[in-house]
Design a protein around this nucleic acid. Sequence first.
DNA 1: GTCGCGCTTGTTGCATACCAGTTATGAGGA
DNA 2: TCCTCATAACTGGTATGCAACAAGCGCGAC
Lengths: 241, 241
Amino acid sequence: MPDTRDAGQAFRKQPLRGTSVRSRVISELRGRIISGELAPGTSLSEIVLSEAFGVSRTPVREALKQLQTEGLVNIRPRVGTFVSAPSRREITELFQMKELLEGAAARLLAQRGRVPELEELADNLARADAAVADGDQERYAELVHEFHDLVMRGADNAKLADHYRTLMNQLAYHRLVHTSLSQPGRPTRSESEHHHVLELVRAKDGDGAERVMREHVRASHRALMDSLDPQASPTAPRAAD
Amino acid sequence: MPDTRDAGQAFRKQPLRGTSVRSRVISELRGRIISGELAPGTSLSEIVLSEAFGVSRTPVREALKQLQTEGLVNIRPRVGTFVSAPSRREITELFQMKELLEGAAARLLAQRGRVPELEELADNLARADAAVADGDQERYAELVHEFHDLVMRGADNAKLADHYRTLMNQLAYHRLVHTSLSQPGRPTRSESEHHHVLELVRAKDGDGAERVMREHVRASHRALMDSLDPQASPTAPRAAD
DNA sequence: GTCGCGCTTGTTGCATACCAGTTATGAGGA
DNA sequence: TCCTCATAACTGGTATGCAACAAGCGCGAC
């Protein structure tokens, strides 16, 4: 959705072109929310933030406004601004959207034929295989993101990528993916599914690529829900609904 | 060509109590942009708008910021804010997204079984049939929106509806739909496609509903492009007035 | 005539002051 | 002890002033 200058943060940690104070505050807050450093429910007082950042209320206020439209915070007029957590239902809805968008991306990528992203995907899988073999979950989580981002980029549809980005921000996916990958055997299966997707993409099988990608997203959703169900997650705060 | 560069004329001050000034400004501007009243490229100066609305720059500024994240305006720092128009490529991308989201909505609606929206859709089609028979294009365009909104609402997925709404805003669809409906015979075919969709939804045929809905969106896209093709001039199309 | 420099004007970015609504709190009475 | 209500503290909402930057325009040099 946004064509703003700081919108690229969710995909890659770029050196932050926007030199404006507002962009800096937005990126900083978004990063802390997505990473979980700022837990859901945390109060984000304009005055406190402005003092913490050493700027005035105005850019902080504008940053919070934008984060609200991105779905990351909830502004209650005259009451306060709080980090928002998706409810159980919202998470399900978000995963339905994720399945939809990523499936479409896989199809589009397959239909495009030979593009540079295919090589990058192959390289990504090679590195991811190594990470799984090493049991390096941290690194594998990073490569999972890279894989999905590459598919999205390879779809060559800016609007699709925009919607996907806002979606992932709302999911705070970086925080969640570790949870789902903690399921025993999940990394291995996940990686296998990635291979399958790329295989079908290379075969220019759009239907198959979309189908397998969607199944992959559903599987990851299930893995996440299984991890979340037994009221586990010792540190992660609950969604208040 | 008519120069509509200046937007600051005669904004009437609606009371609209109970809501913040910012919300009022956002709604007003958004409405004028998607209706085409504010043509693409029009300059939206903060100071001019604030005087026109009789408020200070702050809420105007915040409104413009939000409209930027919605993709309706383009803010060039220290230069100015301008109503943005989607490029040809963006329109294609947006229709790809429209096809995707509406197809998914049709599928979800079909899978839900009996819901109140089905009755509303039937009622909508009855009224739309009458509008087509009367040749009342204005009224039919309105009912087309209602149809698609009903399908979206019936899908019962708030996130899907959110993304759809921003999508339609970016498309300025209200402006475009008149153009595509001006194609001879298009209203009749469009209405027939709507009937087909509802038929499959009632039959709980999710696959079929999605497929037909996607074909319907593609057809409407083609109709629009055919209408747009002869006149390569980017100046404001007069179809709406 | 043409190019380039500098000023002037217009725009937003940021800071600050004031305003109004919400909420917590505590004193007082039943 | 509990409830009521007034009040104060805190919040975001709005207004306004200043500063920095972009760009157009005119003047002067070549």
